[in-house]
Design a protein around this nucleic acid. Sequence first.
DNA 1: TTTGGTACTTTGTGTTGCAAGGTATTGAAA
DNA 2: TTTCAATACCTTGCAACACAAAGTACCAAA
Lengths: 109, 109
Amino acid sequence: MESATDNVRSQMRKGVLEYCILSILSQKEAYASSLLEELKAANMLVVEGTLYPLLIRQKNQGLLSYRWEESPQGPPRKYYVITDKGRAQLSEMDAAWQEMVESIAALRK
Amino acid sequence: MESATDNVRSQMRKGVLEYCILSILSQKEAYASSLLEELKAANMLVVEGTLYPLLIRQKNQGLLSYRWEESPQGPPRKYYVITDKGRAQLSEMDAAWQEMVESIAALRK
DNA sequence: TTTGGTACTTTGTGTTGCAAGGTATTGAAA
DNA sequence: TTTCAATACCTTGCAACACAAAGTACCAAA
């Protein structure tokens, strides 16, 4: 059973996921499973079926690149790295996010 | 021609449009065309093809009701009114929005 | 009666989040 | 050696949604 609140939060997360991914990757390289952990810790819950296609899209847009790295256990990991283009996009997203926060603050006055 | 920034902002607007509509309607009744004006003024640009189905969805969910009112000029206007259920949802959205703003602030530390 | 302004509605398209299922690698237990 | 569990990456099918564009309807003034 799903609450209305879950729906509300899920809807709001849409559109900022890319922002969160770029933000995390601007601080350190990470692979998909570790990104899932970080997002969960940040209360920005995402599932695999959302994250993998999103990373592939951002890579195809030139915002990310990646390299393979051996894992201490299990299959190799695909470490994603933010590109210069990705950092530029992140700056735009910072500005866009800031403006949206202010717009909504004004609406909720 | 469309800039990357437009895309970014458009993506971010998704998921908060319902929040903005309920917020405006919690302060006063309004019809679709006037909502378009208000949202535009608040930098939350939306187009007709987005707004009308959204209002219908919210009405079907019981968050809004409406009444017809004569216009000084042109066809009658459909004034939307927020319901008690809509106000409850708005409260949830306030909380959800607040938490998301904080989550992202933490991510961007 | 035609024109222009206002207002509401619908259709078709592309994107995206997600649930569910699938593939592959590794090391340890049976 | 075979099986199992853990880790990790990927794909498919579906539903929701924003948007552009086109359509419908009402009204008053020219």
